[in-house]
Simulated scan of single mutants.
Amino acid sequence: MNGPVVDVHAHVLLPGIEAYVAEIDPDGLAAAKDLDARRNGRESSVESGRMIQDRWSLLTDLPTRLAVMDATQVDVQMVSPSPSHYYPFLGPDAALDVALQVNAAIEKLVSRAPDRLVGLGVAPLQHPDQMVPALDDALRRGLRGVEIGSFGASPSGGQAGTVELSDPALDPFWAAAEKARAVVFLHPFGCSLDERLDRFYLANTVSQPAENAVALSHLIFSGVLDRYPDLVVVAAHGGGYLPTTIGRSDHAWRVRPEARGCTHPPSTYLRRLWFDSLTHDGAQLTELIRVAGADRVLLGSDYPFDMGTDDPVAAVRHAGLADDVVQAILVDNAATVLPSLSIGFTKKGFA
């Protein structure tokens, strides 16, 4: 590879933040954990707890992280907080306070390995008026942007009071992110389908790609990407279901007047977004490249969770793609999303 291999989808767990939230809002945290348990079901909740315990050092220990990166030929990770750190139940002041603490924790982690890590903070989507201050704080700390969920959940977990990405209240945030060319990493956590997905781990296998599709559709159909054409939005999980079913969106745009909130057919906007490569299927990755473009796909592992891939570079290399496409996904496209990446970063010498 010519240049550093960059994984844009890698997480860190911040136990100190969780402990702080438990102090300031123990009832809210307990209710959120209960909601998460109901959404996932008992069997999946137990298995997820076991998985986190087994991978604790991968999530919390920097030397372990760097050793795994070396072993998997990843030069640089763009590290984002585990989505469990969104805390949608917090009120406006507490949500901003916690977001700033998350940003500070990510800054501290990145500062310990500045040649291997870049960072993302968080912005509380459930409180649109707090998102610009959170983004500004992340950028002041040298982070590359923020991670957000697919919708701002109400404290009750229901649909009342949700903030969708089409909400006009988010316009100041989109404007600030566009002006700063900040990365907005779209990563769902939770699903409004709730207990319908509480078996067979559907709360992850179905909800994550569904939430990605819904959130991206709100962005596209509402005209957000027309108003802010230079936004840098990176969608996790290959954009979920949307890229492989985009023809239905285009058809709706042609035949339904209420679906004409965007200027162009929805498929057009896939080439204004970025997507990680985490599709778990070479044919689906090929389709993503067909509809979005080889210049719009970035390496993503979902490190270190079990629904990610333990060898992301190999997954891309074994997907049957042309050599120049592999080079674009592993190296080149990250230089567009993170234009100063080559400054201060060195290739580790992987073949």
Rank of each mutant, 00 (worst) to 15 (best):
R272E: 11
I289D: 08
A95G: 00
P88Y: 00
G142Y: 03
D7T: 05
G28D: 04
V214I: 15
P15D: 03
D324P: 08
H187N: 15
P88Q: 00
G119K: 08
Y303N: 03
L170C: 14
Q159A: 12
T72C: 05
L186E: 10
V163M: 04
G121R: 08
S44Y: 11
P26H: 08
D75T: 02
S154T: 00
A22W: 09
D7W: 14
G142S: 11
L135C: 06
S249M: 06
V326F: 04
G282C: 09
G119V: 04
G158V: 01
P124I: 07
P63H: 11
N212G: 09
V325M: 05
T60V: 07
P266Q: 05
L100C: 15
F89I: 09
R65Y: 00
P188C: 06
V6Y: 01
V233E: 03
S207A: 15
V163T: 12
H251R: 10
Y303A: 05
S217P: 02
D171V: 11
H127M: 09
A235D: 01
T205C: 09
R227G: 05
S217V: 03
G223E: 07
R272I: 02
Q53F: 02
V118I: 11
P81G: 04
K179Q: 14
S192G: 15
D97W: 04
V291A: 05
A259Q: 08
Q284A: 15
F275Y: 15
I52Q: 12
A169S: 01
H318C: 08
D36R: 14
